[in-house]
Simulated scan of single mutants.
Amino acid sequence: MNVLLTGGAGFVGTHVAVALVEAGHDVVLVDNFSNSHPEAVRRLGEITGRELACYAADCTDATALSSVFEEHRIDAVVHCAGLKAVGESTERPTLYYRTNLDAVLTLVETMAEHEVYRLVFSSSATIYGDPQTVPIPEDAPLTATNPYGATKLFAERILTDLAAADPRWRVTNLRYFNPIGAHPSGLIGEDPDGVPNNLFPYIAQVAAGRRERLQVFGADYATPDGTGVRDYLHVLDLAEGHVAALEHLDEVAPDPDTGTGRCRAYNLGTGRGLSVLEAIKAFEEASSRPVPHEITQRRPGDIAVCYADPSRAQRELGWQARRDVATACADAWRWQSRNPGGFTG
């Protein structure tokens, strides 16, 4: 299958590209490089043994997108592009709404113009808000507590309505939890711009000596050790989930409640929770380095526990997370230690 992968130079996108190539698909990349680097694309060539076509383009640019479809016969799209920092989204909400939603609308309109109706969308577990119960099933109440999550929730609604209106569409929304780790080669991994927004890249930079210590936001939650619990899955497992969803698109059934719209949502997670202190300990063991940390006040909007019920993906896609946290930490440390300044360092 010829697959257009948006955001293909990013952390998730590069690993999805590798998984797609290894599964026998041909991949065309699109990325605006606002939070990624062309070096990542070059390294994809080292890993896959082939030079992947890559276009420096924004998904909000209909003309640029259309030219890619005109140059390549695209069978399906995996849409990973988008702004993703929760904190930044609360400070610049209009930027997130404009960018993430315009990208989805422009992409599906361009796809329809070129008669491409298969789409895998990278959604997020943030659309569950503060869950009422855990593990979280796909039919749990949906509510976003920040603009980033709201863009994912609204995008899912757009795609659900689109599939209901036009029976040619086959859409899968992947609600993934917290990707960690890196490719075992150490050639690609998470390279945050500035101060990391996510826990594991920050832990890795503290272990490497780039940052003095980690702040643990709150140790008085109703969890075994008082710190927040999340579902962390290896980015390679996440990437393989995209491949499974792509190859299942033609089998997507109509919505069981309405009988219309071939659009389906799946959680991608391990189904297990890991606390912040457990994450620190796991990384210390993998890196043989201390991770100095201090307990500080809770952050507004943080929740105590969030982890997935991934049984639907296992049952319908034949997918489940296979790699453990120790493997993810070892791979992340290999990436960090070999690339102390990221792709540009």
Rank of each mutant, 00 (worst) to 15 (best):
F154W: 12
Y221R: 04
A313E: 13
Y148M: 01
E109S: 15
V235Y: 12
Q215P: 01
D191V: 07
V27H: 07
D257S: 12
G186D: 04
A85K: 04
S275E: 14
L20I: 03
T133M: 06
T60F: 00
G186I: 11
T172E: 15
K152A: 01
A208Y: 05
L268K: 07
G181C: 11
H248A: 13
C54R: 06
P300T: 04
A219G: 14
P141G: 00
I295W: 09
V229I: 15
G186P: 11
A19V: 13
P201L: 01
W335I: 05
T296E: 07
A182Y: 03
G228Q: 15
A279H: 07
P254R: 10
L159P: 08
A304L: 09
R157Q: 09
G271P: 12
E46R: 08
R170S: 11
Y202G: 05
P292I: 02
P254L: 10
G226N: 11
Y128K: 05
T60W: 01
Q314A: 12
P179V: 03
G129A: 14
A40D: 07
I188W: 07
L105I: 09
A208N: 15
V325K: 03
P254V: 12
D231A: 10
W319N: 01
P167M: 09
A53H: 13
V12P: 03
D225Y: 08
A163M: 04
G345R: 10
P196H: 09
G241R: 02
V27Y: 09
V243Y: 08
A239C: 10
T296G: 06
K281P: 00
G226A: 05
L29G: 00
V21T: 11
G271A: 02
D130V: 11
G45K: 08
V206K: 03
A17N: 05
P254K: 07
V235W: 11
P290D: 12
F33V: 04
N198T: 09
G194H: 11
R73W: 07
E284W: 12
R264M: 13
I280E: 05
E294M: 11
R272H: 04
P310Q: 06
H293M: 01
R170V: 05
T48W: 08
D220S: 10
M1W: 00
S122T: 15
Y307W: 15
L236D: 14
L20C: 04
A244Y: 12
P224M: 08
M111V: 04
L277C: 08
L107K: 02
Q132R: 04
E88Y: 04
G181W: 14
Y176Q: 04
L101H: 10
P224I: 08
V21Q: 01
P184M: 00
S275N: 10
A304V: 12
E71C: 00
L199D: 05
T327S: 06
S89K: 08
E156P: 09
D302H: 03
V216C: 02
S66Y: 05
A279L: 15
L233P: 02
Q132K: 03
T106K: 01
Y55G: 00
D257G: 13
P135H: 12
R118T: 07
Y148L: 06
L44M: 14
A56T: 15
Y97D: 03
E247S: 14
A165V: 02
Y96P: 07
R298Y: 10
I303V: 15
D75F: 10
L44K: 12
G8K: 00
A253E: 15
T145W: 03
V291C: 07
A112C: 01
E284F: 12
R299S: 14
V18Q: 05
